[in-house]
Amino acid sequence: MKAIWKEKAVKLLLLSTASTTILIVISIFVFLGKEAGPFVVEPGLKELLSTRWMPVSFQKESFGILPLITGSLLVTCLAALLMVPFGIGASVYISELAKPLEREILKPFIEILAGIPSVVIGFFGFVVLVPLIKACFRLSSGLTALAGGILLAIMAIPTVISISEDAIRSVPTSYKEASLALGASKMQTIWKVTVPAALPGITAAIMLGIGRVIGETMAVMMVTGNAALITAWPFDSVRTMTATIAAEMGEVAFGSVHYRALFCVGIVLLLATFGLNVVAQKVLKKYRVA
């Protein structure tokens, strides 16, 4: 009898630790909503849709988050463009073509890359990558969306590689054997059979990578120049949502309109990453069942 109670107590304890995360997520949503809420009343949501982000001004403060959203979007798209070929290429090589020794060498390096703090990557970007971009494309300044995209891709690639590698590895060997038995070459098997079979997993990997990219702050803040422009040109300077929050939260007067606006930016950011994660999880789940 006593033993059963004990077991129940332990189970309850474990349940409570597990559900803490739910509590935290909910309280974050509530807190963000509470702090941003008054913005809806004064000056109203319409203000957020303006095209100008000028929070400190003697003339008229504007809190249009469109330039921040397009900024994040542009940097994210550039990062995704780089992330996809590198991520898939590397994961295919490691899971299908690499000799065991090569794998032994490659894997730890990818893990090390994943572990480098983003400030350090940002510092590297600022000192090495920015002047390099400036020289390569003959720009007057290398502080561009492209610099941000490249750095973010570097940061997200390890995530993409390890998840898509798992996906490729878990494609049943019978598929490959069948393909090879039909006379297909190794390359044909990889691109026509293995990769398509692992595609849902690879898609999820890319989405999780993008999720990391949108939320990244320090590295982007150091290299994109942070000018709040609406642009789709990779050689322009952009201001991302994360950099805006990080740069401005420290000095903003508590409870001011600017403070509320920053929380609104936070909500948009949260919804974006939340949406991506949900979709990625769904894709991953579907693929596991199949």
Binding site: S57, L143, R239
Partner: peptide
């Protein structure tokens, strides 16, 4: 006056 929006911050 306001800073230009192109200014890199």
């Amino acid at each position: 006056q306001d800073y230009m929006t192109d200014a890199k911050l």
